[in-house]
Design a protein around this nucleic acid. Structure first.
Length: 646
DNA sequence: CTAGGGTTAG
């Protein structure tokens, strides 16, 4: 019946099809001249042709034209084709609406393609709706598409629940694709331990591991803690026995990356060398491995070699971002920024990840000017509304002292994630704007965003800088009782600082005693600093005894203690520790800084007058003035603190 | 003439 009708349609529409084809070949203007028709078949053929030639834009234009001529023209063949051409969730919903209008939503082909389209774009609720209403028997494939929808929208819990629902029904069994989809649902939102557990479940259920699932499992290995390398090697071996290592690019790439992330450069290089085939991802994986191992020059070298080889694998944004990120995380921010410039000179467009990396380098260098330049670049390339860039901007502006600019970015965001809130709060905290921080913290609760440990570090340090003991104590309790966050060393450091600065030295030292972990140097340092501020030599002495007893024989520790004695006016003790330090053979690298004036670099080493500094006397006179001003400022702030505590 | 799964940069 179907075939007969298609034959009749075909003959009736033959002439129309030819006119359509020539109109389409002539470009978009001529599409408007296509005569009205009552037959969908010729349209469908051209739609299919466009999709086969990977021109979804032309296919969609044709579909729009078709509906403009007559909304009832599309049939059960047209809608699946249009859905395949759809490039956004919005288009998928529009075609769904057309299907409902035409009464074709229950047609098996239409329903299946609707489910596929919703899954591709991660509209899980809509996918679920179509799935539940599907007329035909549920197949493994339709289950897989629903699970995939949850995977795409980063909802591993519902992916798992759907998998459980599928397992509870006895008809369609999960296959390798079902398992792989479930694995990737967890991998893409960072639930790496679950990925490895599920990979084990998959093996135990008797499902054959294939290249795709092995690739996902390998990508999760570097996050498996102490057993990471052992697990990675086990899965490597498993893949080998299944014959999915050699000749499977995805697995090769996953292996290079896994070994690289674990710092096993020899293994990473070995897999890379022995790979029969390489693509851009393979090259980027080896670049990333070098960068992760801190071998940034080697990473750059590979990138340059890629460029010289020419042809197939030219370096792309990922290659460049990886090298830039490598330099940035090794602390060489200047090199990172220099490479960012070089990348732009090669006419390669940075993307949101590149910008986020570059912004973090700007932040560390306190390079607001360059940061603003990156901001304007982001606006021009329309990347400024992406949360990754926005969070980077908030962080950059806040840490560079432009708190108002940071707030402008924050206020302009359409949706704020935890990182946005934490960056803004930390910005207020580090500039002593405690009231702003506390107000924003209240807004955060209002917006139903759950704070995490980082949030509390930000607000607690804001309180400690402003001497707000009562608020700080309340927040600390709230963190533990309401939010069930167990305090980390950082939180204790904040609290010791808060209590100590306010002069509550006994409370601070009592808190250290009741801490569930061994206090580290930061915690002791906070207490000692408070002793210094309040001139409590006895408490300082007792504290130092405890630090020495804890036996942290590091240079920094000795220097800290020396300075502390000196600050408390206990010069004899200060000298004693200094001698002790020298005897222990510990020497601190002297602090250094340098400035560039007219292409000449002037270096300053702590405690040493530069031999060839013109106008040294003048410099030191200005410095003395500055010190005096800073001291006055400090004293007035401390007086404020005392007033606040009372 | 036909759906679903995979690797790299933060």
């Amino acid at each position: 019946m179907h075939r007969l009708r298609r034959a009749i349609d075909s003959r009736r529409c033959h002439r129309q099809r030819r006119r359509l084809l020539s109109a389409v070949a002539g470009g978009d203007q001529q599409i408007r001249d296509i005569p009205p028709t009552t037959c969908a078949v010729p349209w469908n053929r051209i739609l299919r042709a466009h999709i086969c030639r990977s021109r979804p834009d032309l296919a969609l234009a044709l579909y729009r034209r078709m509906r403009a001529l007559s909304p009832t023209l599309p049939n059960s063949y047209t809608l699946p084709l249009a859905l395949r051409a759809g490039t956004s969730a919005r288009i998928a919903s529009a075609i769904h609406a057309h299907a409902l209008h035409l009464g074709l939503h229950a047609h098996p082909d239409v329903a299946r393609q609707l489910l596929a389209a919703y899954a591709r774009h991660g509209l899980a609720d809509e996918a679920r709706h179509v799935f539940d209403a599907m007329p035909s028997k549920r197949t493994t494939m339709s289950w897989n598409m629903l699970i995939s929808a949850y995977s795409v929208c980063c909802d591993p819990n519902n992916a798992m629940a759907t998998f459980a629902r599928m397992a509870a029904t006895d008809e369609p069994l999960p296959d390798a694709v079902t398992w792989t989809t479930l694995l990737s649902a967890h991998a893409r939102c960072g639930k790496h331990p679950v990925v490895l557990e599920l990979f084990g479940d998959m093996y135990r259920s008797g499902c054959e591991g294939n290249a795709e699932s092995v690739a996902v499992a390998l990508s999760a290995c570097p996050y498996a803690g102490d057993l990471a390398l052992a697990k990675g090697k086990a899965i490597h071996g498993y893949g080998f026995t299944k014959g999915v290592v050699r000749g499977y690019l995805f697995v090769t790439n996953s292996l290079v990356c896994m070994y690289g992330k674990l710092g096993e450069m020899d293994d990473a290089r070995k897999v890379f060398r022995e790979a029969g085939e390489r693509n851009i991802v393979t090259w980027n994986a080896i670049i990333t491995s070098y960068a992760a191992a801190g071998m940034c020059d080697e990473a750059l070298d590979v990138l340059v070699r890629m460029g010289q080889r020419g042809g197939m694998a030219a370096p792309n944004v990922v290659s460049w971002s990886a090298v830039i990120g490598g330099f940035a995380s090794s602390g060489d921010y200047e090199r990172a920024l220099e490479l960012f410039r070089r990348m732009q000179r090669q006419w390669l467009s940075p993307n949101v990840v590149t910008l986020a990396t570059v912004l973090s380098a700007c932040t560390e260098l306190l390079a607001v000017r360059l940061g603003r330049e990156v901001h304007s670049y982001a606006i021009r390339s329309m990347l400024d509304r992406h949360s990754l860039v926005e969070n980077g901007l908030i962080n950059m502006y806040a840490k560079c002292g432009r708190v108002a600019a940071a707030r402008t970015v924050f206020d302009g965001m359409k949706s704020r994630d935890l990182v946005s809130w934490n960056s803004m709060l930390a910005g207020y905290g580090m500039h002593g704007l405690c009231d702003n921080a506390l107000a924003l913290f209240a807004d955060m609760a209002e917006a139903n965003v759950d704070p995490d440990g980082v949030t509390f570090v930000a607000v607690l340090s804001a309180c400690s800088h402003a001497g707000r003991v009562w608020e700080g104590r309340r927040l600390f309790d709230q963190m533990m009782l309401e939010h069930k966050i167990s305090p980390s060393m950082e939180h204790y450091t904040c609290m010791v600082d808060l209590l100590g600065r306010a002069g509550l030295l006994k409370d601070a030292s009592k808190l250290i005693e009741t801490m569930p972990m061994e206090a580290d140097l930061c915690v002791w340092g906070a207490l000692l600093n408070s002793c210094r501020i309040h001139g409590d030599a006895a408490m300082a002495e007792a504290t130092i005894a405890k630090v020495l007893q804890a036996g942290a024989e590091t240079t920094g520790n000795h220097t800290l203690i020396t300075n502390l004695y000196a600050a408390c006016g206990m010069w004899d003790d200060s000298k004693r520790v200094r001698v002790m330090t020298r005897e222990a053979g510990l020497r601190k690298n002297p602090g250094q800084s340098w400035i560039e004036v007219k292409n000449k670099v002037f270096a300053f080493v702590a405690g040493r007058v530069p031999p060839s500094l013109p106008g040294a006397e003048e410099v030191f006179r200005v410095l003395d003035d500055l010190y005096r001003e800073m001291d006055d400022e400090r004293r007035s702030i401390e007086e404020d603190h005392i007033v606040n505590v009372r």
